[in-house]
Simulated scan of single mutants.
Amino acid sequence: MASRAEHVKQLMEMGFPENRARKALIMTHDCGTEPALHWLIENADSPDIDAPVPESLASRSSGRVEGSSSGFVGDTVPGQPPALGVPTQPAVSVINPDGACSPGFIVGTSECKAVLVVDTSLKMSIGKTAAQCAHAAVGLVKNMHANSVPWLHAWEMEGEKTVVLKANSSAELEALEAKAQSLLLPTFMVEDAGRTEIAAGSKTVLGIAGVSEVVDQVTGRLSTLR
């Protein structure tokens, strides 16, 4: 396996400043040039891209990110990319839950997807359901951008494969969310403001994203919303 210095050199040969190259490798757990390159592209316009890496990150090459029901799960270093159970690039690497890199899925973007799960027990109208799905999709993508999910840009460029499924209760949505987070998948839960059809705080739609095989471990038994 190539060293961090070798990957830094490769990124510098592509035209990136040394400090950015080094930061990108740290922020992607030293998983190689391609994940670091994806991170650099995703964060090119970030105002703090040249800010120093926190010492807590600089001293280690892997880790996990804290999140809530609307984000990622793990031990925390704010702003650090999550050690997701999904590929770091549309190629051959995955980041395992322990933060280590290993060979995994041979991933093309068609093998990544987002799933929106609707609580049908709320009996929302078609328009209300559509609005809640839109909130879930936007929130999920914002979370992934905020956490620099390395495969996000490729998924967006390839059509953003998304399916809508149905659950039978709020309790079922919460159970699905917990299982998704145990697999370190990005999630976003929509809670309604209560201004129209349903009570405030009602959990309406859960968004989950990742490699299809991993997402299906959570939602594979669910039926399509029709």
Rank of each mutant, 00 (worst) to 15 (best):
L37A: 01
G201N: 08
A175P: 09
Q217H: 11
N143E: 14
Q181I: 11
N43A: 06
N143I: 12
H145Q: 15
S3P: 00
G15Y: 03
L25Y: 05
A83D: 06
Q217P: 04
P52F: 05
S182Y: 10
F105T: 02
V65I: 12
G79Q: 01
E174N: 13
S223G: 10
T187G: 05
S121M: 06
V164W: 06
G79P: 04
G32I: 02
Q181G: 12
K113P: 01
G201C: 04
L206E: 01
G127R: 14
E34Q: 13
I106N: 10
V205Q: 00
G104K: 05
K128A: 15
S93G: 13
G127E: 14
L84E: 06
K161A: 10
V215A: 08
A83Y: 00
G194C: 10
L116D: 02
I126L: 13
R64T: 14
R221S: 15
L185E: 02
A58M: 07
V115Y: 03
E18L: 05
L25H: 01
L116P: 04
A209F: 04
E55Q: 10
I49E: 06
V92H: 15
T219P: 01
L140P: 07
T28L: 03
M189Y: 05
I126N: 12
S212Q: 12
A36D: 04
A131V: 14
S69C: 09
L222E: 09
Q181M: 14
P54C: 05
M124Q: 12
T120N: 11
L176Y: 12
P17R: 11
A36T: 02
L122A: 07
T120E: 15
D48C: 01
P186L: 11
I95C: 13
V205M: 04
A209S: 14
V117R: 07
M157Y: 05
T88M: 11
K9Q: 15
M27R: 03
P82G: 07
V117M: 03
A171R: 13
D216F: 02
R4C: 02
L184M: 15
T224Q: 12
K128G: 12
R64Y: 08
L152S: 00
E6N: 02
L222Y: 06
R22D: 10
V141P: 02
E156M: 14
R4W: 09
A51T: 01
G139F: 03
E6R: 08
A180Q: 04
K203A: 08
K161P: 02
L25P: 02
H145W: 14
P103E: 08
L176W: 11
G104C: 02
L185N: 03
A137M: 09
K123C: 08
G71K: 01
A2N: 11
R64L: 04
G32S: 01
W155Y: 00
P54D: 07
A136R: 08
R60W: 00
S125P: 09
S223L: 14
G99M: 00
Q181H: 11
T33S: 06
P35Q: 00
R60F: 07
P103Y: 04
N143C: 09
A180P: 11
K161N: 13
V53A: 06
G194S: 11
G207A: 03
T129F: 08
M124E: 10
S148F: 02
S59P: 03
S202N: 08
Q181S: 14
P47R: 03
A146D: 15
P47M: 06
A130P: 08
T88P: 03
